[in-house]
């Protein structure tokens, strides 16, 4: 579908651009454009109550902007309802309310009238952008004493950790996997209990829902989770318990590499909550 400032006919989808969003309507004639709510200008917002489907003339619809008409491609032309039915559906909806900026807006309305399917491509595009954004989150926390083995997944990894003979190493490993569970939930809405894990030949554990990397040093644990390969290492200069959150540290003691490492965000985890470090390290 292309949008062009061309002559429109009854049953056409038309739109105007207001700021960075579009307002849509069904063109019937110069005196009748049917739309869900008035164009959202400051003036209209002030005077309009709950938006409803209404008809205005083309000037009210355009509010001084350039009107573009949907020029359908071949497949869309085949799919569209006859123009008379589009007009009839639009007229039948006049007075209808239930406006919702995301789920039932002016674009849903025109698509319903033209294609019989309520869709909002603007919202779909934004949702797609959000879901496909690069994620590379690093969670850092102080390793507490006496971490229990309860709640560590997968079970096979838990059993391995329980068999570590050194109490310090066992404690750190338990905490790293608990921190991984927290990170998975927070960054990917994933419960490790239901996630698929396997161990590669070299001994590295991998998850089928996201990539991760674990590191611990000097009493601190760090976990990186990403939707692309990721690798993490705590460097030599990592500070000890209690000082990191407020310390101005000019060096970067956390090394993160991977496809999405430019999108890295650091979180300090404390008392079950995590605090975003503004995309910088503990500043």
């Amino acid at each position: 579908m292309k949008w062009e400032p061309v002559q429109c006919r009854a049953g056409d989808m038309i739109r105007i651009r207001l700021g960075s969003l579009y307002h849509y309507g069904i063109f019937v004639s110069e005196d009748e454009v049917i739309q869900f709510g008035l164009p959202p200008t400051a003036e209209n917002r002030a005077k309009e109550g709950e938006p409803s489907v209404l008809a205005t003339d083309i000037d009210v619809f355009a509010c001084g902007c350039i009107v573009e008409t949907a020029v359908l491609d071949r497949s869309e032309s085949k799919r569209r309802l006859p123009a008379e039915e589009t007009v009839s559906r639009a007229r039948a909806a006049i007075g209808k309310g239930g406006y919702n900026i995301i789920h039932n807006n002016c674009e849903h309305f025109v698509n319903e009238c033209v294609f019989g399917e309520a869709r909002c491509l603007q919202a779909e595009d934004v949702r797609r952008r959000w879901l496909s954004r690069p994620i590379c989150d690093v969670y850092i926390a102080v390793i507490p004493e006496n971490v229990s083995g309860v709640g560590i997944f997968p079970e096979r990894r838990k059993a391995e950790i329980d068999n570590i003979s050194s109490p310090e190493e066992r404690n750190a490993a338990r905490f790293l996997w608990k921190l991984l569970g927290y990170a998975a939930g927070r960054s990917f809405n994933t419960d490790l209990k239901n996630a698929g894990f396997k161990r590669q030949l070299m001994g590295k554990w991998v998850c089928d829902s996201f990539s991760f990397s674990l590191s611990e040093r000097d009493g601190l644990a760090a976990v990186a989770v990403s939707n692309a390969d990721v690798s993490l290492r705590l460097g030599k200069d990592i500070r000890r318990k209690g000082v990191c959150r407020t310390l101005k540290n000019p060096r970067m003691p956390v090394e993160v590499s991977g496809k999405n490492s430019s999108a890295v965000k650091y979180f300090w985890v404390e008392d079950g909550s995590s605090f975003l470090m503004g995309g910088k390290y503990f500043e």
Binding site: L18, G19, S20, L21, P40, I101, I102, Q122, A123, V126, R127, R129, W130
Partner: peptide
Amino acid sequence: LTSVNMLYLIIA
């Protein structure tokens, strides 16, 4: 925030 930013905020 623009209206697109707001849309993004709500959807995200």
